[in-house]
Design a protein around this nucleic acid. Sequence first.
DNA 1: TTGTCGTTTAACAAAAATGTTAAACATAAT
DNA 2: ATTATGTTTAACATTTTTGTTAAACGACAA
Lengths: 194, 194
Amino acid sequence: MGQRDTGTEQLIKDTAKRIFFSEGKLHATTQDIADAAGVNRTLLNYYFRSRDILFEQVATEARAEMSAVMDTVFSAKLEFKEKLEQLITVFMDQAMKFPYREMYVVTELNRGDKVVPEEKKIRVKAFLKEISAEMEKGKIKKMDPRQFCMNLFALMAYPLITNCLNKSIYNVNDAEYLKLMKDRKKLIFEMIYQ
Amino acid sequence: MGQRDTGTEQLIKDTAKRIFFSEGKLHATTQDIADAAGVNRTLLNYYFRSRDILFEQVATEARAEMSAVMDTVFSAKLEFKEKLEQLITVFMDQAMKFPYREMYVVTELNRGDKVVPEEKKIRVKAFLKEISAEMEKGKIKKMDPRQFCMNLFALMAYPLITNCLNKSIYNVNDAEYLKLMKDRKKLIFEMIYQ
DNA sequence: TTGTCGTTTAACAAAAATGTTAAACATAAT
DNA sequence: ATTATGTTTAACATTTTTGTTAAACGACAA
């Protein structure tokens, strides 16, 4: 029995993710993706049956990837401070590769009336508790731990999404921008942890 | 000569903006917009000639609106502290009305290879200088003033964009979410200004 | 009232995007 | 070499989205 697996299915998904998550071309068509992958568009239907299925699969995997990355950090047996440092490193590296990934998930949610699956909340809840504990210790400023979380992810993700605007407004080139983003890792940590 | 102006042109633009900027339906078609506005789709072509022209006009006006709001604050004759408070109030109110406005601009930029117009940078530059001055005074933590700006706008804009995700992750309803967002105004100020 | 002119509509046309089919191709097993 | 089976392609069909046209409508002025 010939189980050939030429890797085309994966290539298509990876290309779609690159276009959506890295290049931020949220309006890309199946033809755009096929062209970028260097394959016949029919293959998208062959492997995924329909555009909607492909797009949703991409969105589902995006959510899973984000969760996976976060969960490795969340469940690590580390002191809060170290955990936070690692979270920033890991998340920022991801966000620099795929700045628009969350945006894709959000816009796909706004498109239909899909509901985000009721998973992982447990991990988040545990992390929120760790944050509260750290506030009690006076290590971080007291506030609603959810606000702390939102602050953290906002500081990491947003500047990368608005890349093109920032470059224009602040007059920075690609290299300089990359440096600014790298510096942010340390900066963010110092900002939210005293 | 009959200059009637039934307000339809404005209605169409306002509806498009609502769908794009408030509801975050970045994939909306001309038909979607016409339906939402309760007008015949032909009118979109009558008033704007083509979809692309309408969409670009919406994007252009979005940039102008954002600039206008910011400029009123930037050019206000206020002490830095008061200016900052006002900026947060004004921007957050806007962001709560149109959470996806910047996203629309960004995705429209990513779509083609448009360049963002070389305007307003002067105002921003002046504001960056004010920030530097305030750092010298020890009022805010020393850092690249561009980082300070990015922090500020990230903290304000991001949680609203990821609304649907946050509600799910943090298990909050609409009312609670609204309160969290309102509280952020004060919280953000206290976070970046000592 | 009648004609003018901006507005709106429905019907039609064109273009763009997606989906389907059958056949060609390639590789591994027989 | 032949067969079986998964892969790829081109041609075609369908659906969706966008654009055009001519006619209907409605307020206003002459």
